[in-house]
Design a protein around this nucleic acid. Structure first.
Lengths: 216, 216
DNA sequence: AATAATAGTGAGTACTCACTCATTTTTATA
DNA sequence: TATAAAAATGAGTGAGTACTCACTATTATT
């Protein structure tokens, strides 16, 4: 395990050092922030939902905003970790022979992440416009590192002749748009409707592959 | 001009019957809601920015929320109007010979709409998660009508043999994801960066066309 | 068992919130 | 120009707001 891997492992387990009450506060805050938004949620409400005195919240988090950040920041670490550790290695080790293999693996991987972090991701997206630090943190963590790796991956498959030689950033944008659109439709727009997932995944991946096929 | 067209015209000009002070209040509210969010904006702040007494706001709008709705609702009418009136007719009149012509016209059309309604659209997107009525209104106006028309358009080009015969809703999703991704990248993610728009539009449209090409 | 350190409490603080209403200012009508 | 109607005002209202702090309960250390 590399030094970088260890760093990330530590960041993951950072949540381990939480008291029982702290966990309750976090759970209550996640619930309320996701539902009503940061601004419209009162600390009194969080305390009640957590079954804790209001003062207890401020013993652990200096401000309400610090509570928000302690929910959202670790999620960003989680967001980037698998991309820069596992998937990139699989590509470089030729575990994913085709770009399609890679995309399908990404879909699986990101779906799991989405499902187990729905509420926190919701909070993150909802609050990004109002807290510039969030965007900055995101660029710092995800933007620089993940993007760099994704560029490498794209260039790799381009040089293999599997996908069109557009600028890598453009390829990432087109692929990202398509996959995010797939997830948003399934989980945000039509969360309760009938949805033939196998067919939709096939259509989406098929569309992507044809759209990015080499011009030859 | 059909009865439906007239209805929409009326809805458009609904803004006409506004006093000078009302316009100032709306402008101030749009500014603050877009920047800080609905919940974090106080009526006092809006009044000050508009150069108006706080009571004046409540003479025209019973509640702060009614003020929000009076900003956001007309925008939804504007959003759907051009789609259901102009573009659909052009398609049915064979003004857009190819699906590519249609997509490019849509990009132009929606870009103009976006540019002249940036802040209100920002407010709408930011507040949707916290006000279920907004989502319901959106489905009622945009969802039902616009979607129906888009389905017709897709079926038309499918029967012409220009695009693949996936379920129309899937085609709309893939096209929508691609175009929304293009706009979001340009205006929300990289609003200050260098961006070769001609190249990006060509890449995006090219990707779409190849991705949706018939399998023949 | 005594002491120290940490965690938890909830009433209290100064302040802000959306909204009201009696009063004043502006506009329309005669 | 006098009178009625409409619009605008801003001090006032009670109900919150995030956050503090003197105090109590619990846990760890000697």
């Amino acid at each position: 395990m590399s030094r970088e891997d260890q760093m990330i492992e530590e960041m993951f387990n950072h949540e381990g050092g939480l008291t029982e009450r702290q966990k309750k506060i976090l759970a209550a805050a996640i619930e309320s922030f996701a539902e009503k938004g940061f601004s419209a949620t009162s600390t009194k409400e969080i305390a009640q939902k957590a079954g804790v005195a209001e003062g207890t919240i401020f013993r652990h988090y200096k401000t309400k905003k610090e509570l928000l950040m302690s929910i959202v920041t670790p999620m960003m670490i989680k967001l980037m970790a698998p991309v820069i550790i596992k998937d990139i290695n699989k590509v470089l080790n030729h575990d994913h022979q085709t770009f399609e293999d890679f995309v399908r693996a990404m879909i699986d991987n990101r779906r799991k992440f989405l499902k187990s972090n729905m509420k926190i991701i919701k909070i993150f997206i909802q609050e990004i416009p109002f807290h510039p630090e969030l965007k900055e943190q995101f660029i710092e963590h995800v933007g620089s590192k993940v993007f760099m790796r994704l560029r490498q991956i794209v260039v790799y498959y381009q040089e293999e002749g599997q996908i069109i030689k557009l600028p890598p950033d453009t390829v990432i944008r087109l692929t990202g748009s398509t996959l995010i659109g797939y997830f948003v439709t399934q989980y945000a727009i039509l969360p309760n409707s009938e949805w033939d997932d196998e067919a939709e995944v096939d259509a989406t991946v098929g569309f992507l592959m044809k759209g990015l096929a080499t011009g030859k």
